[in-house]
């Protein structure tokens, strides 16, 4: 069970003009894991996320999710299939309240668009998550008024609204204070224990070593190494890439 891949990418390639951001990148995220995607700045991690979630079209390569090949990744359809992501720069709806931010993310069938914006069930589900993320006292505040770290938490909570199978987190702890980093780590662990799979881009190596297994290392858009955290840490090529050989 845990060895089956929930997500696989094969030969992903993306060029921006002359820049090759991702080149022939092949990896998989095993079901039930917290997989890390690490690499120096500009190594193509965010671009990989954009390719996987349909925000960018790949020049080559294929993506498969939950055993199905995704021909044309599209954010709306992938979300509804159970794959969701956060952004490196937290993206929330600043003019909406926290509760509204969460309720937008509930998968709605068309016929409910005439129903009231926030139904009773929507509200209790939103409050449940806000409680878990320690944001409940701000439930009715404008999301735009949150601190950067709170926005990151809110975005994280938002992508959980539809009970996804796989969450891609793009630097969830960057620019977040240590207390909140601990809170985020706890959240990830708890959710993972409940069966949620994660693919995490993260610069905090201590956190990666504690939290993630396996670890995938990207450099110049290509996979450099992959394996258990301890093995990856001692890999000479990885050390070169990070320390600049």
């Amino acid at each position: 069970m845990s060895s089956a891949a929930l997500l696989t990418a094969e030969g992903l390639t993306k060029r921006f003009g002359g820049v090759v951001a991702v080149e022939d990148c092949t990896f998989s995220v095993p079901t039930g894991t917290i997989t890390a995607l690490v690499g120096p700045n500009g190594s193509g991690k965010t671009t990989v996320f954009n390719l996987l979630t349909g925000y960018l079209r790949a020049d080559a390569g294929t993506v498969a999710f939950a055993g199905r090949r995704i021909r044309r990744p599209d954010p709306i359809r992938l979300y509804r299939a159970g794959l969701t992501r956060t952004f490196q720069q937290a993206r929330i709806f600043p003019d909406l309240t926290l509760v509204e931010n969460l309720v937008v993310a509930i998968q709605q069938p068309w016929r409910t668009i005439v129903c009231r914006a926030i139904g009773r069930d929507d509200r209790s589900r939103a409050f449940e998550l806000l409680e878990e993320f320690g944001l409940v006292q701000l439930a009715e505040a404008r999301a735009g008024s949150l601190s950067y770290g709170q926005k990151k938490l809110l975005e994280f909570a938002t992508v959980l609204m539809a009970e996804p199978q796989l969450v891609l987190l793009d630097e969830p702890t960057a620019g977040v204070n240590p207390v909140m980093v601990a809170a985020i780590e706890t959240r990830i662990r708890e959710l993972n224990a409940r069966g949620l799979t994660f693919l995490v881009v993260e610069h905090n190596m201590n956190l990666v070593m504690r939290l993630c297994d396996p670890v995938i290392v990207l450099d110049h858009g290509t996979k450099l190494a992959e394996g258990r955290p301890a093995d990856v840490r001692n890999d000479a090529r990885v050390l070169d890439a990070y320390l600049g050989a």
Partner: peptide, 24 residues
């Protein structure tokens, strides 16, 4: 006051993000 309105305001704030949250 409807869910349609919430979708529209989400689109106004950040359409790309809304797409990523399954908003049609």
């Amino acid at each position: 006051r409807s869910k349609l309105g919430l979708m529209l305001l989400g689109i106004r704030d950040d359409e790309e993000k809304a797409r990523g949250l399954g908003v049609r």
